[in-house]
Each structure stands twice: as C-alpha cells, then as structure tokens.
C-alpha cells in the first residue's frame, strides 16, 4: 500500500506485499492432467460404455437441479472478475461462499490503483494529471471503505491512497 499525502506531512510510504500466489495455476494444471488420465483409461483399457454407465446416469438426473450454488469456483471467479467494487460488496452479502471467494484474494479486484479519499480537489489537482494510465479511481467518503477495498484486492500494494488529513493517515496506519 502506498500512501501519498498532498500536504507533505510525514510522507509515510510503506509497502506491504501479501504475496502473489499462483495457487490457481497449479490447480488448473493438476485438474487438466487428471482429466487426461480419465480419458486415457476410458479409451484404452475399458470399453467406453462401461465408463459411461459407471454411476454417471444418476448424477446426471440430480444435476437437472443445477444451481449456481454448486458452480465451481473458477466459474464464479470469472463472473466476479467482471463486477466493480460496489457490486462486489453486494455480491459478498449473498452467501458465505461468495464472501469467501470475493475476499480471499483468489478472485481479486485488479488494477485498483488510486483511491481518492475525501477531497475531489486531490483527484483534480494531482491524480488526473498523471492520466494516460488506466487508473481506476474510487472516491471513498468514509474511511471504513478502505478496509473493504483492501479485502477485495489481491495485493495491498496495488492500492494507492491519497489523503489530505494527517489524522486519517494516522488512523489507517
């Protein structure tokens, strides 16, 4: 998290790296290799019919009830990746599983770079000058918002905070 002050108070810059984990990648690899094994067995040793009747018929019948509640994590993550912060907050209210997926860093709110706190003037005077970069700016009126933002991003140092009041910085840090 980078903290910027426009009043050049104690210009605290602290960088925290929560760690960019690649758990997803490994998960995918494991999964696809096991798929290959399934199929290889099916098509080489066993007759295909046997595999097909091997209990799948029942599960197919149950699956007619398919709901999004049983959606695999990857699909939900794909959906959540297309939501903005406000919508993500609403989605985290839907059920525990969604909250967990949205806030555990595996489906992060990417590229939030600047949060313009409290003062529109800061955005106007300082941040928008650096335009050209596709910065996602969130104007937060309340300090509580910041903790929610941090829950929804993968690494805290993708978030930059601009502030005007020394008290605010003290509270947050």
């Amino acid at each position: 998290m980078n903290v910027y002050s426009t009043e050049s108070l104690d210009a605290n810059v602290c960088t925290t790296d929560i760690g960019d984990d690649h758990a997803d990648d490994t998960g995918v690899q494991v999964r696809s290799s096991s798929r290959c094994i399934d199929v290889a067995e099916a098509s080489t040793s066993e007759p295909v019919d046997a595999t097909l009747q091997n209990g799948h018929a029942e599960s197919a019948a149950e699956e007619t009830d398919c709901s999004i509640a049983e959606m695999p994590f990857e699909v939900l993550a794909e959906i959540f990746a297309r939501l903005e912060l406000k919508e993500r907050c609403a989605a985290s209210e839907v059920c525990r599983r969604w909250y967990a997926i949205l806030t555990d860093g595996s489906a992060p709110l990417d590229d939030v770079v600047v949060i313009n706190l409290f003062e529109r003037g800061i955005w106007k005077g300082h941040v928008s000058d650096n335009a050209g970069s596709r910065i996602r700016c969130l104007a937060l009126k309340h300090a509580e918002g910041l903790s929610s933002v941090l829950r929804h991003v993968r690494v805290t140092n993708s978030v930059k905070i601009w502030f005007k009041h020394a008290d605010f910085a003290r509270n947050m840090l």
Partner: peptide
C-alpha cells in the same frame, strides 16, 4: 436460487461493514 446462509446477526454486521459502498 440461492439460500441465504448468513445468520441475521452476521447479515446485520456485514451490512454495516459495506454500508459505505451505497455511496459509490
């Protein structure tokens, strides 16, 4: 077709936690 699996208390707490987002 999803169940709300939060307790009323948890739900109230979460609502409070994200109340600021209303203004986004």
């Amino acid at each position: 077709n999803m169940e709300n699996d939060y307790t009323p208390e948890e739900e109230a707490k979460l609502k409070e936690e994200i109340a600021w987002a209303e203004g986004l």
